[in-house]
Simulated assay, not measured.
Amino acid sequence: MKLTRAMLDEAAGQGLLDEGQAGRLWQFLVAREQHTPGFKPAHILYYLGGLIAIGAMSLFMTLGWESFGGTGLLFISICYMVAALGAVEWLRARSLLLPAGVLAAFAVVLVPLAVYGLQHMLGLWADGGAGSSYRNYHYYIDWRWILMELATLAAGAAVLWRYRMPFTVMPLAVTLWYMSMDVTEMLLGHYSLFSHEGKVMSAVFGIAMTLVALWIDLRNRSSKDYAFWLYIWGVLTFWGALSSMDSGSEFGKLVYCLINLLMIGIGAALSRRVFAVFGGFGLAGYLGHLSYTVFRDSLLFPVALTAIGIAIIATGVFWQRREAAIGASLRQWLPGPVRRLVERRAA
């Protein structure tokens, strides 16, 4: 439910609040909303500018930067980091927390570039390979990236501890994903994201990251959402790996459908849309498979599917009318911490 000033004025008119309380409450809500991420023009500009800057120093890094050499890259990245963290302090002092969080994440993204420059200074990449160019860090799997990733995680943890800004978790989540592939390559001696082993490892890693996000959710008592980016990357990694696997049979595809239905249920329970979105994509893909393969020439399949859709709508109506009682009954089966999390997010 979206609360508006008109609703508060109406409550004051009915004697539930006096006008002074309504005004103070509204000022509090407006101030709080300024620090809550949303599709506001200023917030879009914050994130757009931040992502462009982050992309420039990571995904879109050009080969021309190699001409600076290891010493030059180290010096430039340190200068960028100092400037970014200085801007973070300046913005925090003026309660501009969203742009401060974006710049804090930008500072963390610069860490692998600094470590890469230091490694080249020390001659650790003298034998070439994937590490002969920093831009390959984001495109190639190589166990030698691990030192850069460990440094990024350590620096990101320090920045997150210092500033307590949720957007800082974003580069940490991406780095953990990179590390899962590089560690696998180191242990197995080979790795391909599209091999069976690569898909299994991605799925396992996605589950692990999602569980970490849930653990953070259970322990978090503030209004800041520190688990958001871990949920995003965890679910994306798991669902992407699962969807790319060859089930080999109709039973396997049915299991895939049931997993996606479970994801939708988890998303509804935890109020996390990412589960529902990807679960919905998976369910649509399975129904498309049935339509174009299993029941390709069937006259009854569209009719049956329509009936199922209407039945789901009817279930939704039934649920809405008895939501409180059904929710309370279902929550009794959950462990205590999970039940409190569900109740807190539902509120």
Rank of each mutant, 00 (worst) to 15 (best):
L3Y: 04
G13V: 06
Q14F: 02
Q14W: 04
L16W: 13
L16D: 04
D18C: 01
G20L: 10
W26G: 00
Q27A: 11
Q27N: 10
F28Q: 06
R32F: 09
R32S: 07
H35I: 02
T36A: 02
T36V: 03
G38M: 01
K40Q: 11
P41I: 12
I44G: 04
L48F: 14
G49I: 12
A56R: 06
M57L: 08
M57F: 15
M57V: 12
S58G: 07
F60A: 08
M61K: 12
E66M: 10
S67T: 14
S67K: 14
F68Y: 14
G70H: 11
S77V: 07
V82I: 14
L85P: 02
A87Q: 08
E89A: 04
A93P: 01
L97I: 08
L98W: 03
P99Y: 13
P99L: 10
V102K: 04
A107R: 00
L113F: 12
A114G: 13
A114C: 09
V115C: 07
Y116D: 09
Q119E: 15
M121E: 10
G123I: 09
W125D: 14
A126Y: 08
G129D: 09
A130K: 05
G131E: 12
S132F: 07
S132K: 08
S132P: 00
S133R: 14
Y134A: 09
Y134G: 05
N136F: 13
Y137F: 13
I141F: 12
M148E: 11
E149A: 03
E149V: 03
A151C: 08
A151V: 03
A155E: 06
G156Q: 06
R162S: 08
M165F: 05
M165Q: 09
T168P: 01
V169D: 01
P171T: 01
M181Q: 09
M186F: 09
G189E: 15
H196L: 11
G206Q: 01
A208D: 08
V212A: 13
L214D: 06
L214M: 11
W215M: 09
D217F: 03
L218I: 11
L218F: 06
R219G: 12
R221L: 08
S222L: 07
Y231N: 07
V235M: 04
W239Y: 10
W239L: 00
S243G: 01
S244H: 03
D246T: 02
K253R: 15
C257I: 01
L261Y: 11
I266A: 10
A268L: 11
S271I: 02
R272V: 14
R272T: 11
A276N: 09
V277Y: 08
F278M: 09
G279S: 07
F281W: 06
G282K: 01
G282Y: 05
L283T: 12
L287H: 06
H289S: 09
L290M: 15
T293I: 10
L299V: 05
L299H: 11
V303I: 15
V303H: 06
A304Y: 14
A304T: 03
I308V: 14
I313P: 03
I313T: 13
A324W: 11
A325V: 14
I326S: 12
G327M: 14
S329G: 05
P335Q: 14
G336L: 10
P337Y: 15
V338I: 15
R340I: 08
V342R: 03
E343L: 06
